[in-house]
Design a protein around this nucleic acid. Structure first.
Ligand SMILES: [Zn+2]
Ligand SMILES: [Zn+2]
Ligand SMILES: [Zn+2]
Ligand SMILES: [Zn+2]
Lengths: 188, 188
DNA sequence: CTGCGGTATGAAATAGTATAACATCTCGGA
DNA sequence: TCCGAGATGTTATACTATTTCATACCGCAG
């Protein structure tokens, strides 16, 4: 029970005392396998590997970072001068994973992050820390309702909401972080 | 009185019967001049021209589209083989305009759109039609409150909310539009 | 077995978006 | 005049994403 061992009620990604990320990854992969199984879609080795890399942390990762990691031979394998994978390889895998709801794209970062509730189709809301880079996905009914009511009032038919809130996470707030400190983009 | 001549209460960008966009542009430029004047910032000819291009329609425009337009000699001017402007030129102008609150960046489109309430600093919410491409900026208190309350609950300090809702605008809904029809990105 | 269609991946080229770094220009004040 | 700040010009490059065609694999009809 990874969850019940936590000391706080805070979401895992923002946990004050860190968390066992290995099991985070393992559980995500397990869910993915089960989901694709149940849908009859093919979670191939390549796609599984990309998903694993996306889940390597709770910070959204760029497609080209994934590409770099894909190139590195897995520990224990000596496959010398393995040819560098090409961009379409990773973009195609990401397309598949997004379609399956296993990964979300963070528009404001041109990056990708794993979804921990892939079962139901949803458009999550993201709280992204500009200091440590961690992105937390929520499904807040209040926000969703406010949006829906606003759209209804206008006669606007919502298809895909994009909600990405940049700020400072609880942990970084407590440690007095105000400056960027996280590489990221300029334009933000 | 452009506004009072409208037949509906709908926002100009989504007006059912179209609108006098020339005055849209003129008013935006006027506001910009006044604002920069009052702040002592320099709305140079280049920046004014870029702002005008951003306002050329209510569809967000990409930096490189602006660049193309900048190259075209103004009607009446025969400046032959004018050198093509370089990307930094337009990005710098956009940076200035964004800083002044005169333009917003639409993250999900890598594009830019004029702001019609540049006075107060704000982070607008955008309703973007996937069919006609028009983006409407709102400042809905309900959404803002829902977001704020959610962030408070988490202990997350909001710095820059990004809310961009893709969908179909009232006009396009009425005309039965469901397909994309608008070029735009793939990844959406 | 063999060929066929559908899906996944490999590979090369190119398109699209954005910034870094340094040079030049202009204008107003010391 | 000289200086310094801010704006723009210029070149190169980084970063992100898609198009296009080729190849590999697999289950199945003939
Ligand atoms: Zn999700
Ligand atoms: Zn943080
Ligand atoms: Zn605005
Ligand atoms: Zn529309």
């Amino acid at each position: 029970m990874t969850r019940s061992s936590r000391k706080t009620a805070r979401p895992v990604a923002f946990a004050a005392d860190g968390h066992d990320h290995m099991s985070c990854i393992a559980e995500a992969l397990q869910r993915a396998v089960a989901l694709c199984e149940s849908r009859g879609t093919q979670l191939t080795e390549l796609r599984r590997r990309v998903l694993e890399l996306v889940w390597s942390s709770h910070e959204p990762i760029g497609a080209y970072r994934i590409l770099e990691q894909l190139d590195r031979p897995l520990p224990g394998q000596m496959r010398g001068k393995a040819r560098r994978a090409a961009p379409p390889t990773v973009y195609r895998a990401l397309d598949f994973l997004i379609e399956q709801g296993l990964v979300h794209r963070i528009e404001s970062l041109n990056a990708f992050v794993g979804c921990d509730q892939p079962q139901a189709t949803h458009a999550g809301q993201f709280m992204i820390c500009g200091h440590c880079g961690v992105a937390l996905e929520l499904n807040d009914a209040g926000i969703a309702n406010a949006l829906a009511s606003c759209a209804t009032r206008l006669g606007f038919k919502v298809e895909r909401p994009t909600i990405e809130v940049r700020g400072i996470c609880p942990n970084c707030v407590r440690s007095g972080a105000t400056q960027p400190a996280h590489a990221e983009h300029r334009h933000g």
